[in-house]
Computed example of a mutant assay.
Amino acid sequence: MESSATDSDAPDLVCQLDNVQGMVDALTAVRWKRNQDAVIEISEHGIVVIVEEMSCLQAKVYLQSELFIRYEYGEQGRPRFGVSLGLFVDCLNTFSVPGHSSTIEIRYPGPDMQLLLKSVDSLDAGIYAEIRTRIPDTISWDYNFEPAGSTPLTFTTSALKEAIDDLDWPGSSIQITVQPDPPSVTFRGDGHGDLQIDFVYYSNADLLIAFHCDRQVSYRYKYKFLRATTSNIPGSVIRDNRGSKLTIGRGGLLKVQHLVSVARTSTSHQQIDSAGHQNPSRIAYIEFFVKPEEDEDTADD
């Protein structure tokens, strides 16, 4: 095929999504402060939104290409650009109508390297937005997450959020201990007071859904970073109650994963199989990574 000026001006990405609210919910979950920047990476596999703070806390939202009703990627490599996360979420909210699954089109880049959004499901009126992008100031820190001690734990999302919220008042770092006998996970904070929350697997099976641990591990984390992993989970995600997975990796790196539905409301029943599980292609994955505090009492890995 002969190249042309039109081909060279073609955007790297053109995609359409039929559930704006699902994308808003996913991005809101990683918006833990008002003025927050994000790095967006795009590829043939989908879109990844990365947010981090002080090289101690990182969150990633994975929007796989299968989530979109149209996904056309025409660039080599993985273009990266920075945006204001708050501005991005606020713009998306203007396209979201309660009780209606709006469809939007996202293009990048525009003539001046903007991120372009427009509504495509109405013949009578349209909404159009341009978001200024910038070159990221830093490169996101590279984590090498390797499970250690086999500690994948699955909580109901509401139980995990309530436990972390309750740990606020001691005013210090939080120690998380996972042990195989008895199979349990303990959250402990001390500071202005002492507070300990225990989840014993056999006693709390309705809250601690899945448990696997072959040896005890224990690490401490700053409360403000731990709280960010659940503080802005939208109520719709908690009501879906898909479960949130907590895993402690090698060196104490903590991973917390949430799942957010982006299925179109009016057709969501078509995405659910006979066992009641939604098609994984209609799920956005959110992962938080929290580095542990340096602590002499920390268990050796």
Rank of each mutant, 00 (worst) to 15 (best):
A159W: 01
P136V: 03
W169F: 14
I139R: 10
T133C: 12
A159K: 00
L167I: 02
W169L: 13
L160H: 05
Y143D: 11
T133K: 10
T154V: 11
S140I: 02
T154P: 01
D168R: 10
N144C: 00
G171F: 13
L160I: 04
S173A: 13
G149F: 00
I139P: 06
G171T: 07
L160Y: 04
R132F: 15
E162V: 03
S158V: 08
I164A: 01
T156L: 09
D166M: 02
T133D: 11
D166N: 09
S172K: 07
T133R: 10
S172C: 09
R132D: 15
D165H: 07
D142H: 13
I135V: 14
T138V: 15
I139S: 12
D142I: 13
A148C: 12
S150K: 15
S140F: 05
I139H: 10
D166A: 10
K161G: 01
A163P: 06
D165W: 02
E162P: 03
E146C: 04
R132V: 12
Y143R: 05
D137V: 15
P152V: 08
P136Y: 04
D137S: 14
T133Y: 07
A148G: 05
T151L: 08
T156K: 14
W169G: 08
R134T: 00
R132I: 12
R134A: 00
A159F: 01
R132S: 15
T154W: 00
P170K: 01
D142Y: 12
D137I: 13
L160M: 10
K161W: 02
W169Q: 15
D137T: 14
D165S: 09
P136W: 03
E162M: 06
T154C: 02
S172T: 06
I164G: 01
A163M: 11
S150Q: 15
S158E: 12
G171C: 11
D166E: 11
D137L: 14
W141L: 09
P147S: 07
K161A: 06
T156A: 06
